[in-house]
Amino acid sequence: MKTTRRPSLNDMRAFEAVARLGSMRAAADALALTHGAVSRRVAKLSDDLGLELFEPAGRGLRLTTEGQALASAMGRALALINDTIDSLRDRDAKRPVVLSCERSVAMRWLIPRLSAFQDSHPEIELHLSVGGGPLDFSRDQVSLALRRLDFPVHPDWRVTPLMRESMGPVMTPALLPGFEAGDYVALASRTRPAAWDDWLGQQPGRAAPRATRYLDHHFLIVEAAAAGLGVALCPRILALDDLRSGRLAAPLGFAPDGSEYGLIEPKAAPPGAAPALAALKDWLTGAAREADA
């Protein structure tokens, strides 16, 4: 009579170990079970299947014809499972690291430095996407995000502080006299429309601009300032390279605005990506330290 009871996976595991190792005792050692526990599991499997799986052979056991067939099938099944697990692990290990970065920071600070990271870590496939504010790591397929921390942080995220935000006016050296005289055009980003009013409120006696022009993003106002179109009020990190080259000047320096940038990642990161993520975080932390120097 054909049984409809489904065999236990633990019972099948015990049977596979006995069949592969040739004895109950060896299987018990391999599975960290007692000899009796293994014997009971094999007997229960035989009963559930309605088949004799082992038969006496001297002082030991040997597989019956049915037992050999089941052991062979289980060997193939376990090999397939192990191959699949190895394949999944390899896929995770080779999965590209996706870094999401705020658009202006990516354009003005990160991209000019990324070749140094790739030269140091040619084995890491790094993809860059741009975006700001909160994100869904799973939906957006992002491994790590560089953000200005001006929004609520989800409890499932891990945040690594990176660098402080500081703001100040920048311009070409040729525009310095006009700026000091109060004869200048202010360049402002639509992402922070009140920035000039806030800054002027902290600068008693500083003349307001004769006009204010708004562009969509900070990286645009820094480029406009470098082209001589006006004075940009921008984060120091975005003007850093042009300040060092002398293309831009910052006569009043930069003042912290109380915010900071950070690296955000999900607490439950894919295990295969851990070494690559650690390398990228270490590099970004070092680059931010250099920028703050």
Rank of each mutant, 00 (worst) to 15 (best):
K44D: 12
K44T: 12
K44I: 10
K44L: 15
K44G: 04
K44A: 15
K44N: 14
K44V: 13
L45T: 00
L45R: 00
L45V: 02
L45D: 00
L45N: 01
S46K: 05
S46R: 07
S46A: 15
D47L: 11
D47G: 13
D47Y: 05
D47S: 15
D48S: 15
D48F: 04
D48G: 04
D48H: 07
D48N: 05
D48W: 02
L49A: 09
L49F: 07
L49D: 05
L49M: 09
G50D: 10
G50Y: 11
G50H: 11
L51S: 03
L51W: 12
L51Q: 13
L51D: 04
E52W: 08
E52T: 14
E52N: 14
E52C: 12
E52G: 13
E52Q: 15
L53Q: 02
L53P: 02
L53M: 09
L53W: 01
L53K: 06
L53Y: 03
L53S: 06
F54Y: 15
F54W: 10
F54N: 00
F54H: 04
F54S: 04
E55L: 10
E55M: 12
E55W: 00
E55K: 11
E55C: 04
E55A: 14
P56S: 13
P56G: 06
P56Q: 09
P56M: 12
P56V: 11
A57V: 04
A57G: 02
A57M: 10
A57F: 14
G58W: 12
G58P: 00
G58E: 10
G58Q: 11
G58R: 14
G58D: 09
R59N: 12
G60A: 04
G60R: 07
G60P: 03
G60M: 07
L61N: 05
L61E: 01
L61S: 11
R62K: 14
R62S: 07
R62P: 02
R62Y: 02
R62W: 11
R62I: 08
R62C: 10
L63K: 00
L63V: 00
L63S: 01
L63T: 01
L63D: 01
T64A: 02
T64E: 05
T64H: 06
T65S: 10
T65A: 14
T65W: 03
T65M: 06
T65E: 13
T65Y: 01
E66T: 05
E66Y: 07
E66R: 07
G67M: 03
Q68I: 03
Q68H: 10
A69V: 10
A69D: 10
A69S: 14
A69Q: 11
A69G: 08
A69W: 03
A69P: 01
L70D: 01
L70W: 01
A71N: 04
S72Y: 07
S72I: 03
S72Q: 15
S72H: 13
A73N: 06
A73V: 03
A73P: 00
A73R: 13
M74S: 08
M74P: 02
M74N: 05
M74I: 12
G75L: 06
G75E: 09
G75F: 02
G75C: 07
R76K: 13
R76M: 10
A77L: 15
L78R: 11
L78C: 03
A79T: 15
A79P: 00
A79G: 15
